[in-house]
């Protein structure tokens, strides 16, 4: 007979655990989205993997957000301000091909080829899902 743990660890992908762990201002949005995804999976069982992927992302978000509570109060405002700068055309942004070339030590042509390969793979995966 194997020993049983005294207390089972909560499943981080349990929607109730995610809800408890998320910052308060994200809970309503998560619940609304969860209802929609759960209903879609209930209506079409083939959508269950999508629901599972959704819960994985939100469990990760809840975990990451809970690790650094001191920084969180300003996070939404920072992201919102950055989004406004982008919309206004005043934000400094960098094409991903340039970033790939710089980070991976590639020539511009090699970086473009690297990016196009990823786009082709992404499009192929999407076509297979549909």
């Amino acid at each position: 007979m194997s020993a049983q743990p005294l207390h089972e660890e909560p499943d981080p992908q349990d929607p109730a655990v995610i809800l408890r762990t998320l910052p308060a201002r994200e809970r309503v949005a998560f619940q609304a989205e969860y209802r929609e995804r759960a209903q879609a999976a209930a209506d079409d069982i083939a959508r269950f993997p999508d629901l599972r992927a959704f819960l994985q992302r939100w469990a990760l978000r809840a975990s990451l957000m809970s690790r650094d509570p001191d920084r969180r109060p300003g996070l939404y405002e920072e992201i919102d301000a950055l989004a406004e700068e982008v919309r206004a055309g005043t934000a400094e942004t960098f094409p991903i091909q340039d970033v790939i070339a710089e980070r991976f030590g590639l020539t511009p042509d090699e970086a473009e080829a690297f990016w196009q390969e990823r786009l082709t793979a992404a499009q192929g995966a999407r076509d297979n899902r549909m």
């Binding site: 989205e33 995804r37 992927a53 992302r57 978000r61 989004a83 990823r118 786009l119 992404a122 499009q123």
Partner: peptide, 29 residues
């Protein structure tokens, strides 16, 4: 980079991304 390629192909795809509480901003893993 691979995730951003997925986003480039279908930025609103609910099977790979979700809306966040910031308007117009989504997340992908």
């Amino acid at each position: 980079a691979e995730t951003l390629a997925v986003v480039a192909v279908a930025p609103y795809d609910p099977t790979t991304s979700d809306p966040t509480v910031v308007e117009g901003v989504r997340q992908a893993g």
